[in-house]
């Protein structure tokens, strides 16, 4: 079964084509990774899927329904939830409360139940609390429940953002560079958590630079460069694909040349 379909998705910013006619599908099961050199258009692609940007052209289908151009909150209400490359935590709130916000879509309590503490509101609040604590345990942050979210280490903040996204019970979760800034050990733990998310039945689509994480975690890989899809397949297939090697080596070579120039200059 197909969870997500991108059909000829294009995004132009004035003359710049950030995403150029990209099509691929994400099956329900497993982990799909989008990789590509810096500036290849990966994050733009995510923003197009999650509603933060509207495609100039093309369609995005989620569970068979057209979600192209819907507002982000409408898309998340349908079960597609994203995280951000630069972690965006709610700093006024504790770690646990951050995860509780993730339950927003599945709870109803309004102003008057907040003021009156009706039995229904209290029951709902107990459920939210229990669920949030479960999710903190799932990502291994249960001992930080009452800590300020802003005081967590970078790796912990990433895990918290993931727990918060999962609290929304998404059918598809988009993870934007979840391993960025993590050390080897943290990245390995993250890889296991991502596998477990997929095994629990949530489709995972992630953007990643960390190739070890992608090779260990992803079932399928889509490679983009200069806004275009240049390859697609299993990690093993992609690794030996000449176009992919050229893109990565190419960009590495360019970077090296630029650095050399700076040294000389």
């Amino acid at each position: 079964m197909t969870r997500l379909v991108l059909e000829n998705v294009t995004k132009r910013f004035g003359g710049l084509v950030a995403v150029d006619n990209v099509s691929f599908t994400v099956p329900e099961a497993g982990v799909t990774a989008v990789i590509g050199p810096n500036g290849a258009g990966k994050t733009t692609l995510f923003s197009l899927v999650s509603g933060f940007l509207t495609p100039t052209d093309g369609r995005v289908l989620f569970d068979g329904q057209d979600i192209t151009g819907l507002a982000p909150e409408k898309i998340s209400a349908r079960g597609l939830v994203r995280t951000f490359q630069l972690v965006k935590l709610f700093e006024d709130l504790s770690t646990l409360e951050n995860v509780k916000v993730g339950r927003h879509l599945h709870t109803k309590a309004g102003l008057f139940s907040a003021f009156l503490h009706t039995p229904a509101a209290r029951r709902e609040e107990r459920e939210v609390e229990a669920r949030a604590r479960d999710l903190l345990s799932f990502v291994g942050l249960q001992h930080k429940a009452d800590a300020d979210a802003s005081g967590l280490s970078y790796g912990q903040q990433r895990l918290l953002e993931m727990a918060r996204a999962l609290a929304a019970d998404p059918r598809l979760v988009l993870l934007d560079e979840p391993a960025a800034g993590l050390n080897g050990e943290e990245s390995e733990a993250l890889s296991r958590i991502i596998r477990r998310i997929a095994d629990n039945g949530t489709t995972v689509l992630l953007i990643e630079h960390d190739m070890t994480l992608v090779m260990n975690t992803a079932d399928r890989v889509v490679v983009v460069d200069f806004g275009r899809k240049i390859a697609e397949g299993t990690p093993a297939e992609v690794r030996v694909n000449p176009a992919v090697i050229a893109a990565y080596l190419g960009s590495a070579a360019t970077a090296k040349a630029a650095e050399q120039e700076k040294l000389n200059g």
Binding site: S50, F52, A71, P72, E73, S76, A77, V81, R82, T83, F84, K88, L89, F90, E91, D92, L93, E97, K100, V101, G102, H104, L105, E161, R164, A165, A168
Partner: peptide, 17 residues
């Protein structure tokens, strides 16, 4: 909590519906 979310990051709040 929803207000705190709006205060913390409008984008993250929208991403959570």
């Amino acid at each position: 909590r929803a207000l705190s979310a709006v205060a913390g990051s409008e984008e993250a709040a929208r991403a959570l519906g």
